[in-house]
Each structure stands twice: as C-alpha cells, then as structure tokens.
C-alpha cells in the first residue's frame, strides 16, 4: 500500500550537510501552560534568516550536550524573521530547552516533512480540529488562511484541551473569537463550574459545523485516538475520508528518512509525513504496533 505524500522537499544547504544544525539564538520565551511554552528564535548577530517553511512542517531542535527533538513549527509562515516553536515538556530534550534562557543557542535542522494542503483547500470550507498541543502544528495553517482569507470559504476551528488551564494560545484564541469570519469552538474534557465554555471531547464539536461538508477540507491534529474519533465525527457530518488530513507522530530522529526510526510500513513519517490524507492511512491506523 503506497501512501500518497504531498511532501515537496525544500532544497537548502541541508541537502548536502543534513546532519549539521544551524545555530539560532533564543529571542523570547513565553509560557503557555504549566508544561508548555513558546520559544522565538533568531539568527545570532541580528543576521536575517532566510528560513522558509510550509504549515505543518517541523524542525529538529538540538540542545548542546543533550540531544535533538523534532518539534513542529508553530509560527507564521509568511513572516519569516523568526522561527517559532511551541513545546510541551515531555522528555529530556524538551526539559533541557525549557531550562535555556533568552540569548542562549539552539541548533535547528529543517524544515522537514509534508505540510497541510493549504493549496488544495483554496475555494473550500476549511475545518480545523486540534487537540491539546496539536493546535501548535496547525497554527501556521490558520495564519496562512487568514493572510489569504479571500481565497477560502468558511473557516471553522474546533479546539479541545484537557482542562481550561491546558489551553494554549489563549490570547490569540480570544482575539479570533471576535472575528466574524471564523467559527471558533473551544472545549475542555473537564472543568469546574467557573468555566463558562463548552465541556466535552473535541470530536463532539463536529456537529456544530454549519458549512457544506461536500466542499470542505479538514486538518486534524492531536493524539492519535482523538484524530480517529474526529474522523468518524467528520464522516457523520458528511465528509469523505480523502478530504480529512491528519498529522502522525512516530520516533522521528534524523528528519530526512536516513535513520529509519519513524517507519510506517512503506513510508518515513519524517519525510513523507507527518501530514497524510486519512484515506491513505486508515488501514494502518487500525493495525497495532505498526
């Protein structure tokens, strides 16, 4: 079973030296939640970066003396004066990144991987479903759509977090809520009665979408179970699986399909993924330990 890929390898200096990171300086660190933060990187000595990426791609972030970790890019793909990553502390390297201070260096290799098909979504309704930290890899797609708002029809964003305290990008979500051209629904899995918003898992929000499902494309990102349940909900709402895109996660180490770790049968998630059409991976999603 060949997996369709929309990866367009961006040829950079990395093409020849794929294991050598470019050093960036931490410009700003912003707390998102108790375990998640956003970090802005610039080239040292105020050099202009020519870093370009497509929404959904990731970088390998390297911390001196510690190691590397693949992190999706959460910044604006149109404004490229800095590289933005939103990171959840889940292991040794992410913990080491959190300990770094403004002015310290991080190595970057990338961008790697396939992207959300924002080109294919032109003239369509776009439905974005994100869960937890899954909003970070999808935020560049939102920026892209908002920068080219006239090219797209309805934009619905359904976002679910564990609790109100776990919601990332709070200020941005609040400002988006005020826009008439975005249909935003935020939900949490559990809350006390101070929370005035929606409570329930994010796939249940699919019934709130009002746009025509036959002319829609969905980008779904979050824990794999949440993406599977969301695909079911989107199908009930009337969408076909080939219009639903998800971002998969496996042990991505080198980012360029050379180290083998992220294999998913015939494909390397780091190179051909992480973004796939649901249709192409639906059978694999049912296979355990693949």
């Amino acid at each position: 079973m060949m997996l369709q890929s929309n990866n367009t390898a961006i040829k950079t200096e990395l093409t020849n030296e794929p294991f050598v990171p470019v050093m960036y300086e931490i410009k700003r660190i912003q707390r998102e939640t108790e375990d998640t933060f956003t970090i802005d990187l610039i080239l040292p000595d105020k050099k202009k970066t020519n870093f370009r990426f497509k929404p959904g791609q990731f970088n390998s972030m390297f911390v001196h003396g510690c190691g590397e970790v693949p992190i999706s890019i959460s910044g604006n793909p149109i404004k490229n004066e800095k590289i933005v990553h939103t990171i959840r502390v889940v292991g040794t390297v992410t913990r080491a990144i959190r300990r770094l201070k403004v002015g310290e260096y991080i190595g970057i290799r990338g961008p790697f991987g396939s992207h959300w098909p924002v080109e294919k979504a032109v003239d369509k309704n776009v439905i974005i479903i994100a869960g937890g930290i899954g909003l970070a890899p999808i935020r560049p797609a939102v920026y892209h759509i908002l920068e080219h708002r006239e090219k797209y029809k309805d934009l619905s964003i359904l976002y679910g977090a564990r609790t109100p305290d776990d919601i990332i990008f709070k200020k941005e979500l609040e400002s988006i809520r005020g826009r008439f051209d975005i249909d935003l629904h935020v939900t949490v899995d559990r809350a006390d009665n101070k929370w005035m918003g929606n409570v329930g898992v994010v796939p249940t929000l699919a019934k709130r979408i009002t746009s025509d499902p036959s002319n829609s494309i969905a980008f779904v990102c979050g824990p794999e179970i949440m993406m599977r349940y969301s695909a079911v909900a989107l199908q009930q709402y009337g969408m076909s699986l080939q219009d639903i895109y998800i971002s998969l996660e496996r042990n991505m180490k080198c980012g360029i399909g050379l180290c083998g770790h992220c294999q998913y049968t015939g494909k390397f998630i780091c190179k051909d993924g992480p973004v796939y059409s649901y249709e192409t991976v639906k059978d694999l999603l049912k296979t355990r330990e693949i």
């Binding site: 496996r250 042990n251 049968t265 015939g266 494909k267 330990e289």
Partner: peptide, 29 residues
C-alpha cells in the same frame, strides 16, 4: 519510543517490522 511509550512493544511487532521492511515496504521506499 515516543514520549511516554514504545510503539512496537511486542517482539512479534518488531520481527514483523524487520521482515516486512526487507521484503515489502523497502520496495515502496
């Protein structure tokens, strides 16, 4: 390993990965 756990926890899944890689998915790759 991805944060929190191992995808191929059983030996059968690891053997299957190796054998199907050599004789099947390698062809796609």
């Amino acid at each position: 390993y991805i944060h929190g756990g191992v995808v191929r926890a059983s030996i059968k899944s690891r053997y299957r990965q190796w054998l199907t890689h050599k004789f099947a998915s390698w062809v796609d790759q």
